[in-house]
Design a protein around this nucleic acid. Sequence first.
RNA 1: GGGAAAGUAGCUCAGUAGGUAGAGCACCGCCCUUUUAAGGCGAUGGUCGACGGUUCGAAUCCGUCCUCUCUCACCA
Length: 498
Amino acid sequence: MEEIGKLIQTRIDKIKTIRDMGINPFPYNFEVTDFSKDIIDNFESYNKNNEEIKPVSVAGRIMAIRLMGKAAFCSIHDKKGNIQLYIAQKNIGDKSYEMFKHLDIGDIIGVKGIVKKTQVGEITVYADQLTLLTKNIRPLPIVKEKDGEVFDAFSDKELRYRNRHLDLLVTHGVKETFEKRIKIIKTVKRILDGKDFLEVETPVLLPIYGGANAAPFTTHHNSLDMMLYLRISLEPYLKRLIVGGIDRVYEIGKCFRNEGMDRTHNPEFTMLELYMAYADYIDMMNLTEELFESACKEIHGTTEIEFDGKKIDLKRPWRRLKMVDAIKEYAQIDVENLNEEEMRKLIKAKGGEIKGSFIRGLAINEIFELYVEEQMIQPTFITHQPLETTPLCKVDYEDERYLQRFELFINGHEYANAYSESNDPVFQRKTLYEQSLRRDVDAEVSPMDENFVQAIETGMPPTGGLGIGIDRMVMLLTGERSIRDVLLFPTMKPEKPQ
RNA sequence: GGGAAAGUAGCUCAGUAGGUAGAGCACCGCCCUUUUAAGGCGAUGGUCGACGGUUCGAAUCCGUCCUCUCUCACCA
């Protein structure tokens, strides 16, 4: 039998021993009235001048046991943190103490008792009653700590991601990261709700996909006997709602892209998309600033954060720079006065390449990405991308070679993308139709969505649209470098291939 | 897809001229009523990621594969 099996069997045997003592190792409930952090933070309200003021009832998982004959200290972990318990035979009685000696790290117990400080001053619950609430049979990773230094941390990332339940229990900061994640999302929602945006839920399973260039996941509906796609963006349905008269609409939801995985890409990820009728890309910039700044303040209490050792200030307003001006300033390249040959040379010099025939606007975008993007450390809106970079955006009034679009860069990475949305139905139909013809050469091109085009033909008001990658926003604000550290259950290959 | 590193006890890790597999913690037994990485004594525990090869003999050398990490490329 494998070793883990023996450890488990030992604990299963303990369950029987405890049952033989007339104790149910899996009782139904326990009245919890107090939590670790509250007791520690408000010690005086529990104990004054070593006089008990009020008894407490706490419950949690045993994380450490220090047994000394007829008494023991143990640390339990509850939803707010850790607290030490003092378990003495003379206080809890012979039978309970006998049971206690059969408990393990990982068991869940409830304790009623009084709060006191030990000789060395640690706030401790002195147990009068001990109740076993759940017997554990599978050993936890053992992580120890002294003076803030962690020993034998549960550090194997594969095991941590595959066993997030263990990771949450024993790895410092993991739970906090996910608490921050939801705080960020709630802040975003609060701001949007306050501006009269309607939060909606649109379908994930679609007969046709679109809104981005990406390979979709496919599935099959049995009773309809048809192929369905998982959405790659939220755009097509949110725009239908704008047409439908919901002038301010947003959704925060999972999108799915069947593409490569790395530190910043997971096959399923969370997008915020919002659409605002009668607004343009300038309004979207103002809103983006507010969302990031507010979320940052909510998490950090300040607009200044540090990431990768770099100080970043998210305080509004942020710099707004046309793409060609950014190239001029950061790369000393006057890209508008270059000919094709000069541009090709610049791209090649940085290891880039031009796919297919030379398209001037795409080359400008390529030069920006190669020469400038990584220098955009402080939050910067790069605006006026060349017309050729997307067909879904309106061109600028002043110079029709460029778009009313922005991309937000922070710390050299893109965090948001926004347009003054194109709403010319004739142009949209033509573009989407021509795109769909390229499907046999480019598998990532979306098929023609007739129903969507008909919606646009009904008339979409002038609209500003904004997309923000929530996972990356959370990474920025929590300092995590891998998307897997901001997803509770990141996509993993099965351990043992079937 | 390319490159690099890794996979040894439940956890964290040692372990090369190729010669029967080690530590700490956990677990088990004993001692211990103020410990906090508790301590002391003792014991158990391994298909060394998988499969092949070389060899009298492989955790170790070679090959293939699997998983994960980092990184580059691709992709929003």
